[in-house]
Design a protein around this nucleic acid. Sequence first.
DNA 1: CATTCTATTCAACGATCGTTGACCCAACGG
DNA 2: CCGTTGGGTCAACGATCGTTGAATAGAATG
Lengths: 201, 201
Amino acid sequence: MTDSTSRAQQKARTAGLILEVARHRFASDGYDGTSIRAIAAEAGIDAALVMRYFGSKDGLFSAATEIDLEMSDFSDTPRQDLGAALAQHFVERWEATDTGVPLRILLTAAPKDTAAAEKMKTVFEQQLLPVIAHAVPGDSNGDAVPAKRAALIASHVLGFAFCRYVLKLPAIVAMDEAEATTWLGPAIQRCLEGGIAPLRR
Amino acid sequence: MTDSTSRAQQKARTAGLILEVARHRFASDGYDGTSIRAIAAEAGIDAALVMRYFGSKDGLFSAATEIDLEMSDFSDTPRQDLGAALAQHFVERWEATDTGVPLRILLTAAPKDTAAAEKMKTVFEQQLLPVIAHAVPGDSNGDAVPAKRAALIASHVLGFAFCRYVLKLPAIVAMDEAEATTWLGPAIQRCLEGGIAPLRR
DNA sequence: CATTCTATTCAACGATCGTTGACCCAACGG
DNA sequence: CCGTTGGGTCAACGATCGTTGAATAGAATG
């Protein structure tokens, strides 16, 4: 602890650098398209060091895709404003670099890796569903309705993200955050209201 | 031409078998997860034969992802019914085995392969956009509006397909074709009507 | 200074992949 | 019956990958 850069700090810094590089490579090239050698080269270290810190490529991928949607304080949001509030929150999460990059990684890796698909499913169902279940309790006859609402909201958000970040449709890419929020708000709000036929079943 | 199974027919039949096997493997395991050796083994032939018929793995992939959305006769559909009609058409296309499998292939391959993403973009923009542009002509002030409408429709359809075929969210998988159509119809219809703020810009 | 520890590197193994060229064998034309 | 064509197979090359164990160098410690 004599030097300003102790060896524990050096290790943490290198591991952080690996994580940062890995996130960008995974996000742009996918899981298979990204090699540990490429990550190591971009980080200026040896490939074996990545193995030593994260155990395996899967371990590095898991560490690089830790996602927290930070969905907490929607308890007091009126139900009629929840669609707009959720839209704004999701757009901000996807556009932010800290949470957006891992989300985009999972979005691109989900098709091939079953674990990534499961992880994204868990993220959306376990972080989004409680908010929905609290705001719109299950009807008297059916109890799977909140899950359906959450899934349909996820469908809207993921479809928008897919067209914006994967397909890069010009008309979707051109929208700024405010415009995206304005568009997604009513679409999400529709999933929260009870009169729609598919939600009745 | 003496035998019932001439050699030209044999070649066509084998090539068709390769294509069929390749489509299912690509759809379930993605582009990288599918090896030419695995396709050849499942088809009961040698890997070199695949190369002989399709030139390369990319050639096989391109041949396996030829998509025709068969969007032709929407000219007479009233504008107010177009959302429901498009919803029914898309749900049928995605559920059908002939067109649905290649669509699912592109959906899973688009994140990694830029060519696949470009192909899917072309499919949706060049086969969907003319229908939209014909039904809802460009406004007097802006001309990029039909493209935005088509992109937002694609966002809805692809988001639904992503949750249904990739993430396999239980609430979305459980929906039958009629329920999916009933849900997607109003969502698509909303993209066709002009009073919505993001479409004004 | 000697020793220990650890972050990091080096070299290599085994596996898998796309791709290629030589080869085999049954079906056709003469 | 012989020569040719072409569908199909076999073995191998070169490249890349994830992964591993030994080796190195420099800080921490006594």
